[in-house]
C-alpha cells in the first residue's frame, strides 16, 4: 500500500485576514512497510501533514492517495470510513477517555461498526497481552501510568488492524526507558509490514534504527535533506 502526495497544499481561512498556509505543494511517496520520521519545528505543518495522511482533513490543493484510494477530494463521511479502515492514530496526549476502562478505550473504534461486546473483547485481549497491559483491562484510564496509557493508545490504534500507523509525538511525555520501549513496539509493527509515520522532535525517535527515512518540514514546505540525515 503506497502513499502518494502530489503538490499537496493546505490553506486555513483562505482569502481572509487570518489566512494561514500550513502546507505548500508537498510531494512525497511512502512505500508499504516504511517507518518515516517527520521532523520540523512547531508550526512547520507536521500535524497538518499527518492529518491529511490520516484522512482527517482534506487538502486545499494537489492530490493524495493511499493505495488505490484517492483521499484528497472525499466528503467527510467517506474520509471517516477510510480512516477507520486504513489508519491507526497514536497521539502525543494519548487522547484516551479518562473515566472509561482500558478495554472500552481500546475497543472504541469498533462500536460504530456494530461489533458485538464479545467479539470486541476477543479482538482487544490479544493486543493488550502483546503490549503487556491486559492485567489492567478493567481499570479506568485515569489510574494508568504514562507508559500504560501510550500502550493503550497503540492497542486502540491497532484494533482495526490498519495498514498505516500515524503517531504524533508519541514519546513526548514518557521517560527515556519507556520511550525506548514504545519505539521498539513501533519497530515490531513495522516489521509486520505496517507503514509507520511518526512526527517527533525526540532524538530517540529520530535516531531509532527502525526509522527508514526522515522528512523535514519548514514553513509548510518539505526540505530535501533534513539536518543530520543518515
Amino acid at each position: 500500500m503506497r502513499i502518494v502526495l502530489d503538490q499537496v497544499s493546505k490553506v486555513y481561512n483562505s482569502a481572509q485576514p487570518n489566512e494561514v498556509v500550513a502546507l505548500e505543494r508537498v510531494s512525497l511517496a511512502i512505500d508499504k512497510g516504511e517507518m518515516v520520521c517527520l521532523e520540523g519545528p512547531s508550526g512547520s505543518g507536521k500535524t497538518t501533514l499527518l492529518s491529511i495522511l490520516g484522512c482527517v482533513i482534506a487538502p486545499t490543493g494537489g492530490s493524495a492517495s493511499i493505495g488505490d484510494k484517492k483521499i484528497a477530494r472525499l466528503p467527510d463521511h467517506f474520509r471517516t470510513s477510510y480512516r477507520r479502515q486504513l489508519v491507526g492514530f497514536v497521539f502525543q496526549h494519548f487522547n484516551l477517555l479518562e473515566e472509561r476502562s482500558l478495554l472500552e478505550n481500546v475497543t472504541l473504534p469498533l462500536y460504530p461498526l456494530g461489533v458485538s461486546p464479545r467479539v470486541r473483547r476477543e479482538r482487544a485481549l490479544p493486543l493488550l497481552q502483546r503490549l503487556g497491559i491486559d492485567h489492567r483491562r478493567d481499570f479506568p484510564v485515569r489510574q494508568l501510568s504514562g507508559g500504560e496509557r501510550q500502550r493503550a493508545a497503540i492497542a486502540r490504534a491497532l484494533i482495526n488492524d490498519p495498514p498505516l500507523l500515524i503517531a504524533d509525538e508519541p514519546t513526548a511525555h514518557l521517560d527515556r526507558p519507556l520511550a525506548g520501549e514504545i519505539m521498539d513496539i513501533f519497530a515490531a509493527l513495522k516489521a509486520e509490514g505496517r507503514t509507520v509515520i511518526i512526527a517527533s522532535h525526540d532524538p530517540l525517535v529520530v535516531t531509532h534504527p527502525a526509522v527508514t527515512r526522515r522528512l523535514a518540514l519548514h514553513g509548510g514546505r518539505l526540505l530535501a535533506d533534513p539536518p543530520g540525515q543518515r
Binding site: E99, R100, Y111, P112, L113, G114, V115, P117
Partner: peptide
C-alpha cells in the same frame, strides 16, 4: 468492514448508557 445496523444501534445505546452512568 461494513457496519452492522442493529449491532451499531445496540453498541451506541450501550455507550450512551455508560456515559449516563459516568
Amino acid at each position: 468492514m461494513t457496519p452492522h445496523p442493529l449491532g451499531r444501534l445496540l453498541n451506541i445505546l450501550d455507550y450512551a448508557l455508560s456515559s449516563l452512568r459516568r
